[in-house]
Amino acid sequence: MNDILQILIYGMVLGSVLSMGAIGVSMIFGILRFAHFAHGDFMTLGAYIGLTFIGVMGLSPWFALPAAMVGMAVVAVVIDQLLYRRIRRTQPVILLISSFGMALILRSLIQLIWGSENQTYASGIQFPWRLDVLGGLRIKPDHVWIVLISLGLVAGVHLFLTRTRMGKAMRAMSDNMDLALVSGIPAERVIIVTWIIGGALAAAAGVFLGIDTRLHPVMGWTTLLPVFAAAILGGIGRPYGAIVGGMIIGISMEMSTLFISAAYKPAVAFAIMVMMLIFRPQGIFKGTL
């Protein structure tokens, strides 16, 4: 019982990371109609931008988080304007392959700038809180913060999407692109906001991953598969679905370690994704796929 609770916590932490990535993937798919393969490397870059703020300015990882989010939002918009905007009117598959290329470019740049070895935000071991009432359940403060901040960001995204004109325009474009154009919704501006949110949340995912584990140039790339799985599970193009999908995938991946080797965690995400695509390709919340 205790083990299960403990693993549930790890699952929620991983789920938070995946949700942050999957919201962006889902929004980008909904509005730009392509699977953004560089999203994992957006996460990595966000984590390394955070590392620079920690190193240069001596910020704690939690204060480096907003800086990394802003930095990554800017990078995402620049990449969109330099690359994706020019091929907006081509077929989705061209955008998809271009984003794959962008993923490779970003990863190489990260290796050039920050090196290819493992790095950490803070050295030393963080002592977990021990909850004796729950049979000695141990909770790391970092984990609590990761889950809480994720919840806060999700609430922020929710408020943005439901309360602001731009947020509603994003949902409208995701719902029906042609009608959005006919209504006079400025597509390019909506697209830029989409990249700002997607980039910022990817950075959050990367920084969380860095806090929870370590930094490595392929940290995001290896997380991309479960992020896609989460987005598909929730119904691609549906940011709320991405949150649910992220939690389900994260918890399933961690729970699987009770039965099989931890090395198979990505396989669990892959298996869920394949099952979903076979039996309910539209996802839990009817997506736009």
């Binding site: 004109r165 509603k168 719902d175 009608l179 959005a180 209504s183």
Partner: peptide, 25 residues
């Protein structure tokens, strides 16, 4: 103002939000 023949609403948006989007500009 132009109303297309098919798919002429934003299905996941509420009626009110549909109207708001009409008045976006």
């Amino acid at each position: 103002a132009y109303v297309p023949q098919e798919q002429n609403v934003f299905p996941s948006l509420t009626v009110q939000e549909n109207l708001e989007m009409g008045g976006y500009l």
